[in-house]
């Protein structure tokens, strides 16, 4: 009997074949053809040519939009952080009874499952065009993210310290402040910085549906075929995100 060093895994090969077949099927379903891709390449060349050189002439509009995006990011992060503190505490199954944690967990899951642009559309209808809708939409997204991770962090804490504080006769507030929060504070700050970073990215986008920030300027420039201005806006957004990533990496390193 010969032994093969590497026995073939037929289930895995079958699954990969199925995936390949599915891809072919999906491509035919989506009406994707070579002719279209080839025309696209020609169009793409022309498109890139029109984007170059980036036109920074209307820099005042650009700066205004960018500042508004930053404001949206700051406000929605602060509101999201403040709201997620109680939500996270209520959703932690080791601190709250099930009748509190279950509905709160459901609410957090709801906040997370809708894309922030869709939430922004709903808020644009509810509070009108402008930055307020963007702030509200990103606050919802931040709540979903921070509260979920915060609750998970609280569920992992050691209950010994909580018991020790409780044994000294401390009330619920004392237990929270001296038994629970010190154990999760550094992770909470980490989540907050991550969310600030991601809110900054997202705040440059919500403008596409009219919720304020640079996204509105970008979309308007696109619709007017001002591709050189589009290039300028895109470069500014990328620069801003790069900067934010550098700063947040530095802060996270300093915290550790």
């Amino acid at each position: 009997m010969t032994r093969t060093a590497f026995t073939p895994n037929w289930t895995a090969r079958g699954a990969l074949l199925a995936l390949a077949l599915y891809c072919v099927f999906a491509v035919t379903q989506l009406d994707i053809s070579w002719a279209r891709i080839l025309t696209g390449f020609g169009e793409g060349g022309r498109f890139l040519a029109r984007m170059w050189p980036p036109n920074f002439e209307r820099w005042d509009t650009l700066v205004e939009g960018m500042l508004e995006s930053i404001q949206i990011a700051v406000l929605s992060s602060v509101a999201g952080i403040i709201l997620s503190l109680p939500l996270g505490l209520m959703a932690a199954r080791n601190l709250s009874p099930a009748w509190v944690s279950a509905p709160v967990r459901g609410f957090i899951a709801l906040c997370r499952s809708l894309h922030y642009v869709i939430v922004a559309i709903l808020f644009v209808k509810a509070v009108g065009f402008g930055a307020l809708a963007g702030v509200a939409a990103l606050t919802v997204a931040s709540m979903g993210f921070i509260a979920k991770l915060f609750a998970e962090a609280i569920e992992e804490i050691s209950m010994k310290q909580v018991e020790a504080v409780r044994a000294t006769g401390a009330g619920p507030a004392g237990v929270l402040l001296y038994g629970v929060l010190p154990q999760v504070a550094s992770r909470f700050v980490g989540f907050c910085i991550y969310q600030l970073d991601s809110n900054l990215r997202n705040s440059t986008l919500v403008g596409i549906v009219g919720a304020g920030g640079i996204g509105g300027t970008l979309f308007a420039a696109f619709k007017r075929f001002d591709y050189d201005f589009v290039a300028a806006i895109l470069l500014s957004i990328i620069a801003l995100i790069f900067l934010a990533e550098l700063v947040s990496a530095r802060v996270r390193k300093a915290l550790q």
Partner: peptide
């Protein structure tokens, strides 16, 4: 990789709609 990450998928979609026309191809 960093360049790909720092452009949001909606912005990528805008660019590809301009290049390939509206439709699922741009989305993919």
């Amino acid at each position: 990789l960093v360049a790909s990450r720092s452009v949001n998928s909606l912005v990528w979609a805008l660019l590809f709609v301009a290049v390939f026309g509206p439709g699922a191809l741009a989305g993919v």
